[in-house]
Amino acid sequence: MFSDYSMSELGAIFAMQGFAGLILFSVFVLMALGLAIIFGQMGVINMAHGEFMILGAYVTYFTSIFFADYMPALFGTYFFVAMILAFIASGTLGLLVEWSIIRHLYKRPLDTLLATWGLSLILQQLYRTAFGAREVGVTIPSWMMGSMPVTDMIEVPINGIFVMVLAVGISMAVYIMMFRSNWGKQVRAINQNRVMAGAVGINTEWTDRLTFGIGCGVAGVAGSAFTMIGSTGPTAGQLYIVDTFLVVVFGGAGSILGTIASAFSISQAQSIMEFFLSGSMAKVLTLLVVVGILMVRPQGLFSLKLRK
């Protein structure tokens, strides 16, 4: 199959395909980070994670419209405002959901799965009723359009680079929050031993709520970033949920580094196989390999040694 291509063409194809894989990697990382916090640290299965992302995307969409209508001069910068707003919107919704539903179900993880699935159905219908069933796309600011030539044959889209930069930035922020801040220390303490953490004076209830809120907020930012490379519809969130869970489980729940490593391997495997096989077969093979590895190594790639 390679005989039709010259050597330099092949190199360009692999580079482009690798770059497509990197964009997919950024997407996976952004999606999975919020879930890694919620599922990995709290053990809560949030099936409505995708809908929190979509909320962020809609917030971005409306911010862009607002800027276009009232502050066209500042249109190039709307995205940064939108990201903060998306974090606040999704995070607030997360706090509300934790308070009303999740906190009653901490002892029954399988039931949180069903309840949050119900929540995701309600949110989907809410988006459809409020914003219409049609997919919406934002106007990308002009500095993000076009592509950057690397060599004569290889070109990389600027919005792709931007999403990658964002993924790196948000990962760093999450890492610093988890391992350098007081909140992160409390979350990890609760994860290791809830009763002891409470005994030494950590407000476990409030920390749980905050953790869930921050996880949802990160999902909102991820959704905001998605608008740069794709359109948003009410049911778009559901498409991502299985991938996202697999990324987190494959990486080893509880390990942020594992999540990033697994996002990298899954995305690269998928995008390289996509070149040789049809898109659906590449997806099937990737998922099968991931599930197969999980069957042999259920604790995932990076596992924390915890006394259960």
């Binding site: 399988l110 799965l113 299985v242 869970f245 489980v249 049809s278 659906s280 099937v284 599930v291």
Partner: peptide, 21 residues
């Protein structure tokens, strides 16, 4: 528990993609 649920869900996704593809 939870892991089993997620992996069986992945199987549902895999079979659907396979049938459609």
């Amino acid at each position: 528990g939870v892991y089993f649920a997620i992996i069986t869900q992945a199987f549902a996704a895999i079979l659907t993609i396979l049938i459609i593809g």
